[in-house]
Design a binder for these strands. Structure first.
Length: 935
RNA sequence: GGGCGAUUAGCUCAGUCGGCCAGAGCGUCCGGUUCACAUCCGGAAGGUCGGAGGUUCAAGUCCUCCAUCGCCCACCA
């Protein structure tokens, strides 16, 4: 850190010269690590780990800013503060990026084989991960880098396996043959949450299914997916539906040519009577509702669409066609057969893969699931009981409703990048049902066949590239990398691991405890769990937040992972659109930081947002924040310049009488602010707190106190220095969480002037608390009167076009406030450029001719302006003000006269109204007598 | 189909136990080279707080309905 005596401060704040150096100073000082102080309870935030896939965007910047503000605040409050940084391996997203890179070389992941592909991803991750961490450093994130975690590190790996095994043994994880969402492009199952539904214009075809025993009639059935007719196994109607009562039990013929199948008509309450014709074709292989109905009625699920979205052998004449082409052909064939009764334009929502936007195909397959009911009940309970608080509160309802309607979570993904499922199968016991493709297409087939071809078991495991597990295979679940004892059933058979990996969110769900060492009972886990706040965007409340609560409660004996959940909104562009690379409207946080300074970016993000609401980011706002940093810099430059090497004591409340009114005023304002900020930050109202700090520093401290202090300083009186230094020091402390760089830089230069300052750095200097003994209503009122006089004179000057530099004589008629105005006349003179200032107690003591007067709330300002006075204009203005005052008095009197008000309003409010009444009355009298003079 | 949010000055937004004449930044207009700062200083104009009811002594704030925009959830064959 540059010593304070170094080069003089440049005229404008230069972020680049400060940020990197200051961050290094903090990091080397070890301030980012938690330090025990008097056994104070710790403050802990686990950072939502950014994906390794890319650069930080403004959403990350917002997260980082809010969490850093909270951490810096709590650190300055003296709490041992821990902010754990981390990075997420981001299964599908990362695999897609690396596969896209491979595709440019004309390769697929299968050309490389699993091991080589995973190695390639690791190489890429090792390049991008440091970049992301570097970006967090540039933002000023005060997180503990000695504890940084990657979701695929050994610790989290172990946490994932342990959780899987425990849930499996509890019967909460199981392998099931069920319908799932399948992305034909990503070639993997995805969970319900990873499907985005988009409204699409399509068609609803009404198709006649002829009776099996009577070719003329039949049932008319509406469908949006004629290509799935090939996989129909039944037709269902509602048991209450009178129209179809006689149909139940009969059979219809599958209407497409080339497939001979009769479909029983069944009754099921899930069928809606008022939709379409009331009859529903049942395709358990390709529709979730049909699958359920099929389960109830023991129907077969035919898979007519294959993993790649192409019709399978089961589709008969349509086999080999793409599903879209198959639809067109099916419609054409139905039309040709005269079986299309009608076609309606129809808008319905179609599921798309969140990652690649491909239309998702519901398919029946073998996947791993988590049974959620018990986990969800617990997660709901801790929120309902208030053990965990959600901010803003309205998201509580959203959270609870989701948990109450939860369904099993499909956690297996047919990817190579991620946490491998800790399950093995025996080649000897199950070799008839396991299919393996070996690397480089040496061979492929069932294990039993490969063994016959001469591959030994070890070679198959070693060279397995793709593995498919058939039905009925017995899983061997193990928390260790491989069960040493081998197959329990046959004793010694070679094992092959389940090829699937887990949904990324499974490992993310363990984050609050896996980062702290679980399943080890580590010192960090004991000390920092449960964490204090989970801060993230409302868009991942289900994906991540709810799952963290569920899995953490399960693993940590029912103790929820955090006390508060703070949800922020999305950052949008100037037009309110979501920022995205493809729209080209995304502001890169690092570019913004480069341009305006990181403090400016942070301040804009922190003060531009309110809890849970989206915000817009514009260059204008960034400029405003940059200007604020510069204002602070220059204000500090002034104070430091005046100090001239002096050391000062803090103002002493016991000696408060030695302080002048403006001193007591600014100190009172400061403590009022500090008290408010304390409350606001405790309630996660970062934006409001930041704005108040901004307004105090600029509009009160710099605009009024600093200007007022110049009166004494120029007269050689150094008595304002302790107040200037103290308020600047406190302001820097208050602002530090928001604008850490510029405040630390200034503070390091201010520190030598602070007598007995114990803190070595602002980042660990105590945060100001509002102290009641400094609150001074009298000083605030009297200085407020002084401000009113100054403003009145300034307004008159501006209206009358008095040259800015010219001094004018002024009279103030004052009664109550005469003392301060007389004592501090010099301040009024300088701020209003009015000299000499005569403070008189009666209007008659001020001149009447050729003057412009302003009636104040108490008293009057009179400026003898000679030829500038326009009597007619004065009269008009006075009449307008009189009318306003009279109107106001009428309203106040109406209120005071009301029985309801006098009997029901609090005494305090009544007193306030009465005082106001008197004040306006006084003002009105002043206005009237002034008008009378002009007549 | 259900739920949530937004609607306040020309623009972007604050306004969280209902209680001064509803605030800020930007923009606009007028005026400023005062030795911290033109990334600045002083002044001004500009709002029936989306609409209609209601509760209350008192409503931008609470309740009901409506309108427009946006979001989330849902097995819309």
């Amino acid at each position: 850190m540059t010593p304070a005596s170094a080069a003089p401060l440049p005229k404008a704040y230069r972020p680049h010269a400060v940020e990197g150096r200051t961050y290094a100073f903090w990091e080397q000082g070890g301030y980012f690590q938690p330090h025990d102080r008097d056994g104070a309870p710790p403050f802990t935030i686990i950072m939502p780990p950014p994906n390794v896939t890319g650069a930080l965007h403004l959403g990350h910047a917002l997260t980082t800013t809010i969490e850093d503000v909270l951490c810096r605040w709590h650190r300055m409050l003296g709490e041992p503060t821990l902010w754990v940084p981390g990075v997420d391996h981001a299964g599908i997203a990362t695999q897609n990026v690396v596969e896209a890179a491979l595709a440019k070389e004309g390769l697929s992941r299968h050309d490389l084989g699993r091991d080589a592909f995973v190695e390639r991803v690791w190489r890429w991750v090792n390049e991008t991960r440091p970049r992301i961490e570097e970006q967090l450093r540039l933002m000023g994130a005060s997180c503990d880098w000695s504890r940084t975690v990657f979701t695929l590190d050994a610790g989290p790996q172990r946490a994932v396996r342990t959780t899987f095994v425990n849930l499996f043994r509890d019967g909460k994880i199981y392998r099931g043959h069920r319908i799932i969402n399948w992305c034909p492009r990503c070639q993997t199952a995805i969970s319900d949450l990873e499907v985005d539904y988009e409204e699409e214009r399509g068609a609803l075809w009404y198709v006649r299914y002829p009776w099996a025993d009577d070719g003329d009639g039949g049932m008319v059935i509406a469908t949006t997916r004629p290509e799935t007719i090939v996989a129909d196994v039944a037709v269902a109607v509602n048991p209450e539906d009178e129209r179809w009562r006689d149909a139940v039990g009969r059979r219809v013929r599958l209407p497409l040519p080339g497939i001979e199948r009769e479909l029983p008509v069944i009754a099921d309450a899930a069928v809606q009577i008022d939709f379409g014709s009331g009859a529903l074709k049942i395709t358990p292989g390709h529709d979730p509702l049909d699958f359920e109905i099929g389960e109830r009625h023991g129907l077969e699920a035919i898979r007519a669409i294959d993993w790649d979205g192409v019709m399978s052998e089961a589709a008969g004449p349509y086999a080999g066609l793409d599903r879209d082409e198959a639809r067109r052909r099916a419609v054409a064939d139905l039309e040709a057969a005269g079986l299309i009764v009608k076609r309606e334009e129809y808008a319905h929502s179609v599921g798309h893969c969140q990652r690649c936007n491909t239309v998702v195909e519901p398919l029946v397959s073998d996947q791993w699931f988590v049974e959620m009911d018990a986990l969800a009940a617990k997660a709901a309970q801790v929120v309902r009981d208030g053990e965990v608080r959600i901010v803003p509160e309205r998201f509580t309802k959203v959270y609870l409703q989701w948990l109450e309607n939860i369904r099993p979570w499909c956690i297996s993904r047919q990817l190579w990048w991620g946490h491998r499922i800790p399950v093995w199968y025996c080649l000897r016991c199950d070799g008839e049902r396991i299919t393996v493709a070996l690397k480089n297409e040496e061979a492929a087939g069932r294990v039993s066949d490969l063994l016959r071809q001469g591959f030994d078991e070890a070679a198959i495991v070693e060279r397995a590239d793709r593995v498919q597990i058939g039905e009925g295979v017995t899983p061997i679940v193990s928390g260790e990398s491989e069960p040493e004892e081998g197959c329990g059933a046959c004793g010694a058979g070679t094992l092959i691991q389940d090829p699937d990996v887990l949904d990324t969110w499974f490992s993310s769900g363990l984050w609050p405890h896996s980062t702290l060492g679980w399943p080890e009972q580590s010192p960090d886990l004991r000390r920092f769990y449960p964490t204090s706040v989970m801060e993230t965007g409302y868009d991942i409340i289900f994906f991540w937040v709810a799952r963290m609560v569920m899995l953490s409660c399960h693993n940590m004996d029912g103790v929820p992972p955090f006390r508060s959940i703070y949800l922020h909104g999305l950052v949008r562009d100037a037009g309110g659109r979501k920022m995205s690379k493809s729209l080209g409207n995304a502001i890169d946080p690092l570019v913004a930081g480069e341009q305006y300074g990181m403090d400016a970016l942070r301040f804009t993000l922190a003060t531009g947002s309110t809890p849970g609401n989206d915000m817009r980011m514009t260059d204008e706002r960034l400029q405003g924040s940059r200007n604020f940093a510069n204002k602070l810099w220059n204000g500090a430059r002034f104070v430091l310049g005046e100090l001239d090497g002096a050391r000062v004591d803090r103002p002493d409340p016991a000696g408060a009488t030695a302080l002048l009114p403006e001193d007591r005023w600014i100190l009172s304002r400061l403590h009022r602010l500090a008290g408010g900020v304390d409350t606001l930050l405790g309630d996660f109202q970062l934006g409001e707190a930041g704005r108040q700090i901004h307004d105090f520093l600029w509009n009160e401290f710099f605009d009024w106190y600093v200007e007022a202090s110049k009166v004494r300083l120029r007269a050689g009186d150094r008595s304002p220095l302790p107040v200037l230094v103290h308020v600047l020091d406190s302001g820097l402390r208050l602002l530090h969480p928001y604008m850490p760089f510029v405040t630390e830089e200034i503070w390091q230069r201010l520190r030598p002037h602070l007598r007995d300052e114990a803190a070595a750095a602002l980042i660990v200097a105590p945060y100001p608390r509002g102290e009641a003994r400094w609150i001074d209503d009298g000083a605030e009122r009297t200085f407020g009167a002084l401000q009113e006089v100054v403003r009145a004179i300034r307004t008159v000057r501006a209206e009358k076009r008095v040259e800015a530099g010219r001094w004018v004589e002024a009279y103030v008629v004052a009664d109550h406030d005469a003392t301060i105005l007389r004592d501090r006349a010099a301040v009024v003179e300088v701020l209003a450029r009015a000299r000499p200032l005569h403070v008189v107690s009666d209007r008659s003591a001020a001149p009447h001719e050729q003057v412009v007067a302003r009636v104040l709330s108490r008293g009057e300002v009179v400026l003898p302006l000679g030829g500038l006075v326009d009597l007619a204009a004065e009269r008009t203005r006075l009449e307008k003000e009189i009318a306003e005052s009279e109107d106001r008095i009428r309203r106040i009197e109406g209120k005071l006269a009301s029985d309801g008000f006098r009997t029901k309003a609090p005494a305090e409010v009544i007193a306030r109204e009465q005082a106001r009444h008197e004040e306006v009355q006084g003002r009105l009298r002043g206005l009237q007598s002034r008008l009378a003079e002009l007549e």
